[in-house]
Design a protein around this nucleic acid. Structure first.
Lengths: 210, 210
DNA sequence: AGAGCAATGTTGACGGCGTCAAGATGACCT
DNA sequence: AGGTCATCTTGACGCCGTCAACATTGCTCT
């Protein structure tokens, strides 16, 4: 049995046995991602930030890929929290609730681009890791539940789910949620709400927004 | 491997003055991307593949970023060719034609993942480069034209354009176009045609396909 | 309690990377 | 012919991930 989950408040001054270096390294990596983005994340820098030598992480993670996997797992938890917060916002109906979830998705991708890149873009994390997959599935469930009212059968409609997911994900990765997106030079970028409304509308609606 | 870098202006004998090293380096980088993906692309390896020393590219490109920009520009040209080929396939109507463009988009992202990653994922290329932006806009025009029949006004509808673009882009980047996508464990992935039909349908149709 | 040992962290080294500086070489111009 | 400049080479630097060897800690077993 390992000696994890022990005192991290009272840290002995011993040069060895940091206390809970595994957690500290994930914290350090998370901070680096938030401050400098994916390009700043390095095994050696995370180790330095945790106050430990450059080779220490090797005893806790399977190389940089392992550290990235652990960080991405934590990041998915933060992501799921943000999606849940969007879901729990006051909404007038099902469509507005789903929109709030999607907007939380886009806010996260813009405000925590480093985390988002690690989660979805970087080839570093081991995407077959069961813990990481579970964290990702948990976040996806929130989006899925938001789509449920729009399913044909009332339970689950993969077409709606995947259509919403791909659209919000593409919107995020194309950088369209940033007001200064360079894409605006070749096309006027509508707000995401307009895209979602267009996708969810099943009958002719004459009212259009500006 | 044959020395096929330059055939139009061949100067094979001199150790210096390669002939057209700039083109040869882009060719080499393109080949690396096709064979090994984005992770294999390196300034030194592209130089070695072109038969020059590791520092030679510095005289033709602004570092790795500059080489990536040049490669991405060429890749956008190949991408636009594929989209145009999809557009020119025989189609029964406007929706099938747009679908063929989108399928070409997805095929390219799957078959040339290295190029696709460089174009859309890697932070390397300088996305403000005018040549690169022009190449990207040219490819986008093909998708835009395919969307034109579905515009409300008949000319251009940013909502339709962006909705289709984000959906196909998200579908590509989530890896959903690969039959062995791990996402299939958490959700049944419908074919892209179903997503597109759902997006373009403006009136109730009760029949759903499998 | 004391021995042994696994866990944990350190130092040092290796090769690969991007990048810069300085030198060599060949083409072109006057 | 001589000069000049673009082009390419060599070598070096620091950073990176990773491995090997070593030191220290603290638990466990007898």
């Amino acid at each position: 049995m390992t000696c994890d989950a022990v005192n991290m408040s009272s840290r002995p001054k011993s040069p060895h046995h940091h206390g809970n270096l595994r957690v500290a390294l994930v914290d350090a990596g998370l901070a680096i991602l938030l401050e400098e983005g994916l390009g700043g994340l390095t095994l050696r820098r995370a180790a330095a930030r945790a106050g430990v030598s450059h080779a220490a992480p090797a005893h806790h993670f399977d190389g940089l890929s392992g550290l990235m996997t652990a960080i991405a797992t934590r990041a998915y938890g933060m992501f799921a929290d943000r999606l849940a917060a969007g879901r729990d916002l006051p909404a007038k109906g099902d469509e507005e609730r789903l929109l709030n979830i999607c907007l939380a998705y886009l806010d996260f991708s813009r405000d925590h681009a480093g985390l988002f890149d690690l989660m979805f873009v970087s080839p570093g994390p081991d995407r077959d890791d069961p813990t990481l997959k579970a964290a990702g599935a948990e976040a996806y469930q929130i989006l899925r539940e938001g789509c449920r009212p729009f399913a044909a059968d009332g339970t689950a409609d993969p077409v709606v789910e995947i259509a919403v997911w791909t659209m919000v994900h593409g919107y995020a990765l194309l950088g369209l949620s940033s007001p200064e997106s360079p894409k605006r030079q070749i096309v006027e970028i509508p707000p995401f709400a307009a895209l979602l409304r267009r996708l969810l509308s099943r009958r002719d609606h004459s009212k259009t927004d500006g």
